[in-house]
Design a protein around this nucleic acid. Structure first.
Lengths: 128, 128
DNA sequence: TCATAAGTTCGTATGTTGCGAACTATTGAA
DNA sequence: TTCAATAGTTCGCAACATACGAACTTATGA
């Protein structure tokens, strides 16, 4: 078990961020971490959007997020506490994470998954 | 040779956009298309950032961009004219593409490729 | 020392990507 | 027509990436 490695802020790349967040599972994890009040364990995500993620897969996803520089993970006894590094990234790439998270929420709103409340949202998008 | 397919605007996904732009070659192509005055052919990108991209690889990259909804391609005689669909996407996911392109340019500026001018930029980022 | 719990790593099956070779349009001669 | 040239596409395979069950490591508490 190698010790946890986090890239320094100047080693974080846009490609890495985009690739990490182009996976729906990782994007969901990151979104939940981003609006969490306090750190979350990995196992808090074994249930994600009505779907069960295997433990080993989850571990890989957390590693991907960590190595992309999106989250910081810290051992705390037997478990692991994960937080986002959004302030750092906001400094380096202003507006990037915010735009991505907002886009994800626009999309899931349109697909009627969360907040299936407002009526004209999906219809309006057809103006292409 | 199947006819060119473009997704309708409501079928464009954030995951698809992020994945397409997480590749440095595609990101470079898209960035150049985005600030181009008029449509560009595929072969205009055979030379990209001091690097030669094989024709077949380039074709795959254009297909990826097209199917992600990022560009529109149109046959014009023997060649193909490519333009971005940024206005449509801006409507659906406001600020997303702008933030990504800006982040890419911040990054390449930091790596001393274009505008290798300012001095303390890299050192200051170490405050992580 | 043992059981349990939280994550990680390994092995393998399956998917994705890069690129040369062969192919398909389209155009413009002859 | 037929031929050559040009712009892209598709095929096939090797290399790389990903998902997940099984086995492992590390920390904790009885």
């Amino acid at each position: 078990m190698r010790p946890l490695t986090h890239p320094s802020i100047e080693d974080i790349t846009v490609e890495g961020i985009l690739h990490a967040l182009s996976d729906p599972v990782r994007a969901a994890i990151y979104a939940r971490l981003a609006c969490a009040e306090r750190a979350n364990t990995c196992s808090a995500f074994l249930q994600l959007d009505d779907r069960t993620i295997p433990k080993s897969t989850l571990s890989q996803h957390f590693r991907a997020l960590r190595e992309a520089g999106l989250i910081r993970s810290e051992r705390r006894g037997v478990e692991m506490l994960n937080t986002t590094r959004c302030e750092e990234i906001q400094q380096r790439f202003p507006g990037l994470l915010q735009a991505i998270i907002q886009a994800h929420s626009i999309q899931s709103a349109g697909h009627g998954k969360p907040t299936p409340r407002r009526k004209g949202a999906a219809a309006k998008a057809k103006a292409g």
